[in-house]
Each structure stands twice: as structure tokens, then as C-alpha cells.
Write a protein that binds this DNA or RNA. Structure first.
Lengths: 112, 112
DNA sequence: ACTTACTGTAAGCGATGACTTACGGACAGA
DNA sequence: TCTGTCCGTAAGTCATCGCTTACAGTAAGT
């Protein structure tokens, strides 16, 4: 559920494709696997990663298991991007960067 | 500059740490390497990945090279998250998901 | 020109990850 | 209960990646 897990999950193209396919609605594993050039077990493994990252929810449907996309799972990632690299801080940070440039180019006095 | 590159770059913890350190202001490679338990060449390689992802900017300072964080580089990722998994679509998507559940659980008529 | 400081790149190694096939468990229907 | 279907997991392979040390290049100072 951390943004690290989310980033790791989203970093893989196959996993992104699976997740985007689930936008069309919940699907069982077999159906999902049929749409991608990978084996069914591979899809299962990817779904496990996505589930652990909170990006996918499972729901038993008899012998099958219905997977559903969970957009809310992206919240931690959004929070990370906003808090650490938010647009609000951006202008200020860049300005500070400019100012610290000269101070950093010269020999350091304190810090470190 | 694609969100794929950005996700790959951000998926690595060391790379995130380097990027967050650059928030404090621009730094040369050696200074940046001193703050992390990795060798200087490793930092160079990470910075190359970050640069190719558009998350870092370089500026020559004599023999040294000053690296600066570039928060604007996150724009493609933000756009991807918003457009594909945006909060606007979220409620609707989940509602559609609920509705399609039954239709999907039953034998398919068209599609596929 | 020579030395020193700061860096990027090549080469190699170990770990991680994505994928495959093979196997075993859980549920519905006859 | 037996069969067929749907699925997760184990085991193994191959590529990728992160890291290291060694080497080569560029700019400033004397």
C-alpha cells in the first residue's frame, strides 16, 4: 500500500496494460489472459503484485475470481507526488535552487 | 519523457532518495554520492536515468556538473494518472463495474 | 605542460524479476 | 462422486538491473 509498491507495480508495462484493461469492467483471470500475449499464470502473478499494491480488488465468483480495478489505490502515489514534488512547492523550490546555486558552487562553509 | 520512463525511474528507492536530496538545492555528483551508501559511478548512472526521464537537469560548472531537480518532469506521469485513472472517472468507473459484474459473470454474448 | 579535481563510461558480477510449464486445490454440474 | 473448469503456486530459465572497480576524458591552478 506504499507508494513504493505502487511505483514498482506500475513500472511494468504488462501490469499497466492489465490494469487498463480492467477499466472496461471486472474480469476473471482467463479472460484477462486471453487479451494479452502472456500465459495465465503470468497474469495471476501480476495480479498478485497489483493487489498487494492496492490497485486491484478480488471477489470470488464461484470457482472463478473476479478482478476489479481500484483507482483509489493510487491515492498514496498521488499524495507522494503532491507532498514531495507538488506544484505548490515547485516554483519556490526552483527559485531556491537558483539562489543556492552560487553558494553551492563556492566552497562550502557549514552544512555536511 | 514518457510516463513509462518516469515510473521506471521512480520505482528505484535509491533514485527516489537522490531525487529527494536534490530538493535541498543543486549539487555536483560527488556531493550527492557522499550522502548515500553507494559509489559515485552508481550515482552517475542513476542520474542518467533520471535525466532521460526528464526529472533532473544538468548544468556544467567548470569541470563539475551541477544537477538540479526538475519537478515539472513529473507532468507526464500526472497526466497519465489523471487521464487514465482520474478521480473524475473513478466514481463512474466503479458504478459501471458494479453493473457489469452480473453481465460478466454470465456467459458472454458478444465482445471477445 | 603538468598536476589535481570532478566526472562519465566500460566491464563484470550478483540479485531481482518476468516468463514459462507442471502440478495441485476449489467449485459447479451430471 | 466423478468430471470439467477455473485458478494459485512451485520450480526453473533467461534477461534485466543495480552495484562495484578500473579506466579515460575535461577543466582549472601552478
Amino acid at each position: 500500500m506504499t507508494y513504493g509498491q505502487i511505483l514498482t507495480a506500475l513500472a511494468d508495462p504488462t501490469r499497466r496494460a492489465l490494469l487498463e484493461d480492467l477499466r472496461a469492467g471486472p474480469m476473471p483471470v482467463a479472460r484477462l489472459a486471453a487479451r494479452h500475449p502472456v500465459s495465465r499464470p503470468a497474469v495471476s502473478q501480476h495480479l498478485k503484485v497489483l493487489q498487494e499494491a492496492g490497485l486491484v480488488a478480488v471477489e470470488p465468483r464461484g470457482a472463478a475470481r473476479l478482478y476489479r480495478a481500484r483507482p483509489r489505490g493510487l491515492a498514496p502515489l498521488r499524495a507522494y507526488l503532491d507532498e514531495v514534488w507538488g506544484d505548490v512547492l515547485q516554483a519556490f523550490a526552483e527559485e531556491v535552487s537558483r539562489q543556492m546555486e552560487d553558494a553551492n558552487a563556492r566552497p562550502r562553509h557549514q552544512d555536511d
